[in-house]
Amino acid sequence: MKRRLASITNNIYPIATLLAILVLWECLSLFEVVPNYMLPSPAQTVEAFINDFGLLMSHLKVTLLETVLGTLMGVAIGYAAAVLMDRWDPAYKAMYPLIVLTQTIPAVAIAPLLVLWFGYKMMPKIILIILITFFPIVIGVLDGFRSADKDAINLMRSMGASRWQIFRHIKFFNALPNFFSGLRITVAYAVVGAVLAEWLGGFAGLGVYMTRVKKSFAYDKMFAVIFLISIISLILIWLVSVLQKKCMPWERADEVSDRKKGGQ
């Protein structure tokens, strides 16, 4: 009970700040401090969102599909690369610097090239998302594999465990927290990556919708789609947290025992 109360009071601060910003913004538009065509009011944004809801959803479907496909593939490739680099040292030595190097190339710079090479359909979007997703996963997971307790591994070896068993019982679990924190960053980036790639050329998706409303100077719709994108990102981040809790029940067990200790 106390805990729930604490979580409500903790939430009050950001919500209050957000409300204050919205009120300020509404006033700015209402009293035309900033011209309305440049900065539509929150009310107008909501109205635009409701009016265009059907269209937004049909574009959202495409963006989400790209995000999910790209993320799944990026995660799978990233994980596989981490396993390979952990198992086989030459792979680590050969690939690690290159992987870091790829991260110095801005996504904005390669996106147009991808569109040029792979056309206006889903392919370049998915490839861009794979590139974005790959890095946090491979680095995080590899770090998790490598930081596994050496004594625990030795103990497993003394039990006669195979490399696969050591992976399955120790390394896999040791990398889980890193995997999920990587995934949390990744899903947010992935949505932005999808929109960015759509922006540069495509037939459907929120990025395409954005360029269209921008060209028609419908800034209220522009704001509506921006909000939609952040809400979708937040939902995806939340879903990753839910998944993490499901996959790592021992973390919650700690909380239970801590609370018990506190109650004594």
Partner: peptide
């Protein structure tokens, strides 16, 4: 030859993500 004689350290090395029964049954 590993796998014949068991070993225990000062650190209990129980795996934090497994329940006690799974930890104990691990060998």
């Amino acid at each position: 030859t590993t796998g014949r004689i068991s070993y225990m350290l000062q650190k209990d090395l129980l795996l934090p993500y497994k329940t006690i029964e799974d930890n104990v049954a691990l060998p």
